[in-house]
Write a protein that binds this DNA or RNA. Structure first.
Length: 324
DNA sequence: TGCCCATGGTAAT
DNA sequence: TTACCCTGGGCAG
């Protein structure tokens, strides 16, 4: 599922290709038919991401709120922005599964950074470039909950946890449930809220980082990786996390989120160069310190990475580097 | 082909 | 805690 960085990238696609345009909204699958009718034909005036939620504003005063959940995805077709070298390269990598082809795709993708072009792009937990369609508009494939269409671009939403039309008060209610997001709550205000949220709760920090009311946008990957980077035990109660450690956690999240939005990948190992960097882009197994590495040797100390279920989700950590 | 798993979250128990 | 929503990829057979 998309953690926060993906949703910010999706919001940017809407900002660049839908905001300022009239949008035809429909529900090919039918389950969003009444919501679609409320905003169909109106101009999109704003695209905003907060944590893992996307808010699209229309000139009628109504908003579309979308949460992708575990399986959701947006499929863009037509004119979209392709700026993630890795996204495109790894996408084609996945189709061919041959490293040589990956390198060719990587080199090829360097030419298209930031350039709007006609293609198809799947935006979910990862991004994948696909062959451009020949028919326009492209026929919806599978269960498309919502279709948003301008003259140049189609966005198909499938499998979301939440997809609804709400008013300003509804947006306010949704935002009130969310903790700070570094790309929304800039400066020290967001950091202050985060530190207070952590240090007033007794739940373990590994659980608090996944709590969207404590901090918005962190998922299971970033949770594990942030704790490793901080050398922090996932089991330390929030109120026992020193203030300077909590501040540093927030700053590191802000740094990783920014990197994720720029690259389209959850790159949590710093300083990768050359082949190691390209491998990390192409292969998830080469991308993280501890996430999804149960039993494998810690990249820093060699201790087998541990895993246990915390609050229903798999938690990964290094018992030596993150003592407690 | 079919089963398991997944980067979420909510509601029921 | 568990069930469930709902989709796609990986992998065993």
């Amino acid at each position: 599922m998309p953690e926060g960085h993906s949703v910010h990238r999706i919001a940017r696609q809407f900002d660049q290709h839908f905001v300022g345009r009239r949008v035809a909204v429909s529900s090919p699958q039918g389950r969003f038919a009444s919501g679609a009718a409320m905003i169909d034909g109106h101009e999109m005036i704003e695209s905003r991401a907060v944590g893992k939620q996307l808010f699209l504003a229309f000139d009628s005063g109504l908003w579309m709120r979308v949460h992708l959940g575990l399986y959701g995805a947006w499929d863009f077709a037509g004119e979209v922005t392709v700026d993630a070298t890795l996204a495109s390269a790894s996408g084609r990598m996945g189709q061919t599964n041959q490293r040589g082809t990956f390198l060719e795709a990587y080199e090829d993708s360097l030419h298209s950074i930031g350039a709007p072009r006609r293609t198809r792009l799947r935006m979910a937990e990862s991004e994948q470039l696909e062959e451009p369609e020949t028919e326009w508009p492209p026929p919806p494939i599978g269960q498309v909950r919502a279709r948003l269409m301008t003259e140049a671009t189609v966005a198909d939403l499938r499998g979301p946890t939440a997809c609804e039309v709400i008013d300003d008060a509804g947006v306010a209610r949704a935002l009130a449930k969310l903790g700070p997001d570094p790309l929304v709550d800039r400066g020290t205000a967001g950091q202050r809220r985060f530190v207070e949220n952590v240090r007033t709760r007794s739940a373990p920090i590994g659980q608090l980082l996944m709590d969207q009311s404590v901090v918005a946008g962190i998922g299971n990957v970033y949770r594990a990786e942030l704790l490793f980077r901080a050398g922090l035990s996932p089991f330390l109660p929030g109120r026992q996390v020193p203030t300077d450690v909590a501040k540093a956690l927030w700053d590191d999240w802000a740094k990783l989120l920014k990197r994720g939005v720029e690259t389209g990948q959850m790159l949590t190992i710093d300083g990768l160069r050359g082949e190691a960097y390209r491998r990390a882009l192409a292969f998830r197994a080469d991308r993280h310190w501890v996430y999804h590495r149960t039993g494998e040797p810690c990249r820093r100390c060699g201790t087998p990475i541990a895993m246990e279920i915390m609050a229903g989700r798999k938690l990964y950590w290094c018992p030596t580097c993150q003592p407690g």
